[in-house]
Computed example of a mutant assay.
Amino acid sequence: MLIRRIKKEDNKNVEKIIRDVLTEFGGNREGLAWADPELSYLSEVYKKENTAYWVAEKDGKLVGGCGIGPVEGAEGVCELQKMYFLEESRGTGVAGQMIEKALDFASNYYDKCYLETLSNMKAANRFYQKHGFHKIDKPILDSEHYACDVWYIKDLK
């Protein structure tokens, strides 16, 4: 599988992947990435030097993606954002490759990486723990993703 930076022409497909996966896990509601207004133009959102979004492509078809962006109000902390993969790509190792790429990138700009998720995404929770994230009791700041019920943090330095 090819892992590369998002391009403008990927926006529609990435939005569909995110919405499809959220629907699969009951996350098609307010308080989650489902309601994020920027879902339609992620290639524009991740243009700053300290941000990035990658997509995974298999045989010309996008199967997943993830991003890194700052946590506004928490100095030195980034967030692993919008990491979603279609069922067909889960278990292939591509998510592991992508998170390593994302965390390597993040370590150039940040000291810690934070993420928010749902408890019913059991495989994702195991995946994050396997990759060195530690569960915390509450979000580090209030966010628009108030429906998330699990939070993690990882030291990057």
Rank of each mutant, 00 (worst) to 15 (best):
N125S: 12
G27T: 05
G93P: 11
R126D: 14
E15C: 13
N28D: 15
L39Y: 02
Y46P: 00
E100C: 12
G27L: 07
L115V: 08
G27Y: 04
V77P: 09
Q129H: 04
Y114D: 12
F127T: 04
E75G: 10
K12A: 14
N13Y: 10
N120D: 11
D59S: 13
S89R: 03
F25G: 00
K61G: 00
K82M: 12
M121Q: 10
K101P: 04
T117D: 08
A74K: 15
F25P: 02
L103M: 15
L22T: 01
A123G: 03
L62R: 07
L103P: 07
G76N: 11
R90G: 08
E88T: 12
L86T: 05
T92L: 14
K82P: 04
E116S: 12
L32R: 01
A56I: 02
V55Y: 01
V45D: 00
G73I: 05
L22P: 01
A124H: 04
V71E: 10
L62V: 07
Y114Q: 11
S107H: 09
E24P: 00
N125R: 12
K48A: 14
C113W: 04
R90Y: 10
F105S: 07
M98P: 04
E30C: 00
I17S: 02
T117F: 07
K16T: 10
E15H: 01
A123W: 12
G73M: 09
Y110T: 11
F85K: 04
E100P: 01
Y114C: 07
Y109G: 09
E79F: 08
I17C: 03
G73L: 09
E100D: 15
K58L: 13
I18L: 06
S89C: 14
S107R: 15
G27S: 07
V45G: 00
Y84E: 08
Y41W: 06
L39F: 05
A33H: 05
Y114W: 13
P37V: 09
F85G: 01
D59M: 05
P70V: 11
G73T: 04
D36F: 05
N50G: 03
A106T: 10
G31W: 08
F127E: 09
C113A: 15
L86C: 07
Y41C: 11
V71M: 15
D111R: 15
N11I: 06
A123P: 04
D111G: 14
K61R: 13
T23G: 03
A35F: 00
L22M: 14
E100L: 14
A33D: 13
C113K: 01
E72P: 05
V21K: 00
T117P: 05
Y84H: 10
D20F: 02
A74C: 13
E30G: 07
G76M: 12
D111V: 06
K16G: 00
F105N: 09
K58Y: 11
T92P: 06
Y53F: 15
L32W: 01
I18S: 02
P70F: 10
P70C: 09
D104A: 15
Y128R: 02
Y114E: 12
A52Q: 11
L115G: 03
R29W: 02
E72W: 06
